[in-house]
């Protein structure tokens, strides 16, 4: 596949996790555009760098601001957010416009599989199949990427 790699913004206040995520992005054929640790940094970088995808932790260096970051990326920047959090149950029902969540603790392979899957979804506008283990999609994106039809067909 000789296509443009997915540009990804990392929004995570644990530097070690962010560093490892950059390696995983590289291995999944994505390009890490930058790394933000606070809500302000994240929104500024999303405006400037136009990421295709933003990996967003809920608890950032300035508090539980990740949900608002996802909402602003969704509304103002045209990018797609994906939560990465240990607090899956605390996410709002509408996922603040994000496409889904990877629950912590995740495995390296779990993240790589999710990135491959989302690359296909964002490129084709529909899902290649059910999401891999570890990735949960939001209700809006289940509908957008045609997973209802997929479930019926199988």
């Amino acid at each position: 596949m000789n296509e443009r790699p997915l540009g990804v913004l990392i929004v995570e206040d644990e530097v070690l996790l962010a560093t490892e995520l950059e390696f995983l992005l590289d291995e999944a054929g994505c390009r890490a555009l930058g790394h933000a640790m606070t809500a302000d940094e994240a929104v500024t970088m999303a405006h400037d760098l136009h990421p295709d995808l933003a990996l967003v932790d809920v608890h950032l260096a300035d508090g539980p601001t990740g949900v608002e970051v996802a909402r602003r990326i969704h509304q103002d920047c045209g990018g797609v957010a994906l939560f990465m959090t240990a607090n899956v149950k605390r996410l709002p029902d509408d996922f603040a416009g994000a496409c889904g969540v990877i629950g912590k603790p995740y495995s390296g392979n779990g993240v790589r599989s999710a990135l491959h899957y989302l690359t296909a979804c964002l490129r084709d506008g529909h899902a290649p199949g059910p999401p891999p283990v570890g990735l949960t999609l939001s209700p809006d994106y289940i509908a957008l990427w045609g997973l209802h039809e997929l479930a019926k067909a199988s």
């Binding site: 644990e14 070690l16 996790l17 560093t19 490892e20 390696f23 608890h59 240990a86 607090n87 605390r90 629950g103 912590k104 603790p105 995740y106 495995s107 390296g108």
Partner: peptide, 21 residues
């Protein structure tokens, strides 16, 4: 309880990232 669960999960994530790095 939620706070403790959250911390356990984040610490497990940290340990796993250290080993990966």
């Amino acid at each position: 309880l939620h706070e403790v669960d959250h911390r356990v999960k984040n610490n497990l994530q940290l340990i796993s990232s250290l080993l990966l790095l």
